[in-house]
């Protein structure tokens, strides 16, 4: 673990600028994935609207920086707080009204789309064209002339998110979240405050995601509602933890190390050949393969291989798993208990 950290710290000295960019995206998406993992992985509350938090955080800090010259380092926290507020609203409405599973997913999608549509119609935020940050190279304005600093910021963000996830995993809240994920009704019967726990998880997750938005804006130097709030970004966020293994500490990181380079390489390779859509076909096929052959994600699988568990090799398909190994099939959804 320490060795890996040292390697990552020393790595920028040896990398070219292209590989550096790849690593920055790996860390950044691992960070966002870990933030999502707190709610979606540990708590089992799938959100497909996390881009809304990225967008809110990014727009808040950028707007404050452009209008009041407030440093994005401070704006980052304000943006995170703004995202946390939105998270609290979504969480309060969703959990108070007992939306579970697919219904909660749709609620998050709807809020993400509402944010996107509203922001594209606010002229102070640049409308559909978005905001453009002029480069000043001032570190206080979150701008670095050397990509290596972005590398360290992204690495720092990822490590912070892993620290938070590790703390939660070991805390009472982590146990509550796991209990809610496995069986919400049973956990409530045992006295778990499901509403409060889920609300805390979504607020924390939204805050971290919102903080990431500031990095997003200042690394790309521009913000468009369609990309910062769009569903494609939400999909990118959700993919990494699920491919890596949702509800595990290393899952989002591993998923990001698998997916980000793959996306990057296939994008460059196929775009050069003039086939702009092919890299996403590869991406989609990989997803299908992961679901069919590594349904619990790469990390639990690898761990199983290394520990030489009896079930070595490809895990059996879902329907033959003994009870207790796979999550029980969720009961048919009832939107609200009578």
């Amino acid at each position: 673990m320490l060795l890996a950290l040292l390697v990552l710290l020393a790595l920028p000295q040896f990398l070219g600028s292209y590989l550096l960019t790849v690593f920055i995206f790996i860390f950044f998406y691992a960070y966002l994935g870990q933030a999502w993992n707190l709610l979606g992985g540990y708590g089992g509350q799938i959100s497909l609207g996390h881009a809304a938090f990225v967008g809110i955080g990014a727009y808040t800090s950028t707007y404050l920086a452009m209008t009041y010259q407030l440093s994005p380092w401070i704006g980052m926290l304000i943006g995170g707080a703004a995202a946390a507020c939105l998270g609290a609203v979504i969480g309060y409405l969703g959990f108070r009204f007992g939306l579970r599973g697919f219904y909660f997913i749709l609620l998050t999608v709807a809020f993400g789309e509402i944010c996107r549509l509203v922001v594209s119609h606010v002229d102070a935020l640049g409308g559909a064209l978005g905001l453009f940050i002029t480069f000043s190279g001032d570190p206080w304005q979150f701008q670095f002339s050397d990509n290596r600093y972005y590398y360290y910021v992204a690495l720092g963000l990822m490590l912070i998110s892993m620290g938070i996830a590790a703390l939660i995993e070991r805390s009472r809240m982590g146990a509550y979240l796991a209990a809610i994920r496995e069986d919400e009704d049973a956990s409530e019967a045992l006295g778990v405050n499901a509403f409060g726990t889920k609300l805390a998880a979504i607020v924390l997750s939204a805050f971290l995601t919102g903080v990431g938005g500031t990095f997003y804006a200042n690394y790309l130097f521009s913000l468009q509602p369609n990309t910062a709030f769009g569903i494609p970004l939400s999909v990118e966020i959700i993919l990494r933890p699920i491919v890596g293994g949702s509800g595990t500490l290393m899952g989002p990181v591993l998923g990001s190390f698998i997916l980000s380079p793959l996306a990057e390489v296939s994008r460059t390779y196929f775009a050069r050949g003039g086939l702009s859509g092919v890299h996403l076909i590869v991406y989609g096929s990989l997803l299908i393969a992961v679901v069919l052959f590594f349904p619990r994600g790469a990390y639990p699988y690898l761990r199983g291989v290394f520990r030489r568990l009896p079930r070595r090799g490809a895990p059996p398909p879902f329907r033959h798993l003994p009870p207790g190994v796979a999550r029980a099939k969720p009961a048919p959804e009832r939107p609200r208990d009578p």
Partner: peptide, 12 residues
């Protein structure tokens, strides 16, 4: 399979 796996598959 769990919901999120089905969603991921269909997303693919």
């Amino acid at each position: 399979a769990p919901h999120e796996m089905q969603i991921l598959l269909m997303l693919g």
